[in-house]
């Protein structure tokens, strides 16, 4: 029953460290008496959990159909060029992690990007650059 709080606990760890360190995996494995490989594999199922440190800002840009036909591809390229990283990578200064993601649920207001938990809708190239520049 208590194991139902797994996702919540992992979110807390993720938010605290920017990733899920091994000792946290070990801890939960011991507590619930399940193989640590299983905990690890579960974490790796979910896109929002990381087993490696992420940047201070996780940039999520939607490229699913509705955003895609509203030019999210160009937004993605602008961000990639600006940050100098590809999907799933973190900038050398550990400031940004870029994720090209599937639908964020703002299909009527695309293109959409998230900076950590903050959502920006109807973004343009200039807007995203401003947003990124304002991340300090």
């Amino acid at each position: 029953m208590e194991y139902a709080s797994f996702l919540e606990r992992m979110h807390t760890v993720q938010d605290t460290y920017g990733y899920i360190p091994e000792n946290e995996i070990d801890k939960i494995a011991k507590e619930f008496n399940i193989p640590r490989a299983k905990v690890y594999g579960t974490i790796r199922f979910y896109s929002m959990f990381y087993t490696e440190p992420t940047g201070k800002y996780i940039i999520r840009v939607c490229d699913s159909l509705s955003c895609h036909i509203n030019q999210s591809k160009e937004i993605v390229q602008i961000i990639k060029d600006y940050l100098g990283v590809e999907h799933g990578q973190t900038t050398a200064d550990k400031k940004f992690t870029l994720e090209i993601v599937e639908c964020l649920g703002y299909c009527g207001e695309g293109p959409v990007m998230m900076v950590n938990e903050h959502v920006y809708t109807r973004v343009s190239g200039n807007m995203v650059l401003d947003i990124l520049k304002n991340c300090v």
Partner: peptide, 25 residues
């Protein structure tokens, strides 16, 4: 490994075609 041997060193990680069988970390 998990059911017969009671150990469980293997797990599936990731999803989609990236799904792999791997070990802890």
């Amino acid at each position: 490994c998990e059911e017969t041997q009671g150990i469980g060193i293997f797990t599936m990680a990731n999803r989609g075609p990236a799904t792999i069988v791997t070990t802890y970390g």
